[in-house]
Simulated assay, not measured.
Amino acid sequence: MARQLSLVPAPPPGPAVLTDVWPHVRAALDGDAPLAVVPADPGPAARAAAVLRPEVPLEDGADLVVLTSGSTGDGRGVLLTAAALRASATATLARLGGPGGWVLALPVSAIAGLQVLVRSALAGRPPAVLGPGDRLADALVRTPGERRYTALVPTQLRRFLAAEPEALRGFDAVLVGGAATDPALLAQARDAGVAVVTTYGMSETSGGCVYDGAPLDGVGVRVTAQGIELSGAQLAQGYRLDPAATAEAFVVDGAGTRWFRTRDAGAWQIGTRRAYSPLDPAVAEQARLVVEGRLDDVVVTGGVNVAPPAVEAALREHPDVADAVVLGRPDAEWGARVVAAVVPSPGAVPDLAVLRAWVSERLGPPAAPKELHVLDAVPVLHTGKPDRRAVTRLIEGT
């Protein structure tokens, strides 16, 4: 019997999540009522409906459909089964030390926020929800269980580290993902006694599946010339109403293992050495996965590959810069030029020559931005990730 997909609007952050979304997610995990949690704003909601097409019967087996961020388009609907979501949540809880109470601080229209609900459901208790203006310390007090966890994006970690470091120290683990986390920020958090855990994953893997560079139990990782590829019970079925994209992204090898092609560049870090080929089993236990950015985002300037996340991290370390997004733009001489859009620190006036010297000293001259734009804030997608298309429009004045 064909099942229909229900679109559930994500309420603003706050207690309404527990009445408007939490029961639906629990029903989806039981296989009773498939759903997609979508942005509530009219424009994004209309785009979500156009992609997900709830009037068309749902593919067999799917229980939850997650709309990807759409950083390079309108996004895709990722088909997840209850079994995949449970496998991901179970592996996460095993790595962290067992079930506990969660503070939900992320939007539930994206996989990271939804997984907080899934892990809470497995623990048998709803999360404490952080609303606008709420103090993290107050949410922590409301968090049930002997062990307490939360999940943040790097911007939130930076903000809470400055405002409420004592609250962050109250968590048994603070998962940080959704975007590259600056090494300096991680070092600052760990020096402050925060049990921060970096996560790598995406909607197609039911959320994070590599923690601090090490795959969760049951997760396979391989680094190829085509990028990082992932396998395991947490993988999605594919994409909603898009068999061609599914066949391109999900492949089965000669041994019958199904892999997801992430299109992220990566390497294995072994001590101070990086390996870009299959690991020698003798060193596999010591290796940690390093994500070097999207293959499509690499800026080739003057024949040199520049990874925007590395430049962004360097810029954020400068005292005049609070946040940064780095892009490539066409250049008649260089092929592409590195462009930086930055949010100034309070009272600061970023200077291109100063920032060029700063980046050049750390990453080499090709990585130094050749163009600088100042923003009031970095626009973000519904997932909390930077909206690079919006940044480009701001830069171009369109």
Rank of each mutant, 00 (worst) to 15 (best):
D331K: 11
V325A: 15
V300N: 12
V311G: 03
V311C: 00
L315S: 01
V326W: 03
L327N: 05
V326R: 08
P319G: 11
W334Q: 14
H318T: 08
V321F: 08
E317D: 13
A336Q: 15
W334N: 12
L327H: 02
V311N: 02
V326H: 01
G303R: 05
V325G: 07
A324N: 04
N305M: 14
T301N: 14
L327F: 02
W334V: 09
A310R: 07
D320R: 10
L327Y: 00
T301A: 14
P319K: 11
E333A: 15
A313V: 01
G335A: 12
A324F: 05
D323C: 03
E317C: 04
P308V: 08
V321I: 14
A310K: 06
R329Q: 11
V311I: 05
D323E: 08
P308G: 07
V298C: 06
D323Y: 06
A332S: 15
G302E: 01
G328T: 07
R329T: 09
G328V: 08
A314Q: 10
N305H: 15
V298H: 03
V298D: 05
A313M: 07
G303F: 02
P309H: 08
G302T: 02
V300W: 13
V304F: 06
A336T: 13
D320H: 12
R329N: 08
P308A: 03
P308R: 07
E312M: 08
N305R: 15
W334L: 14
G302H: 03
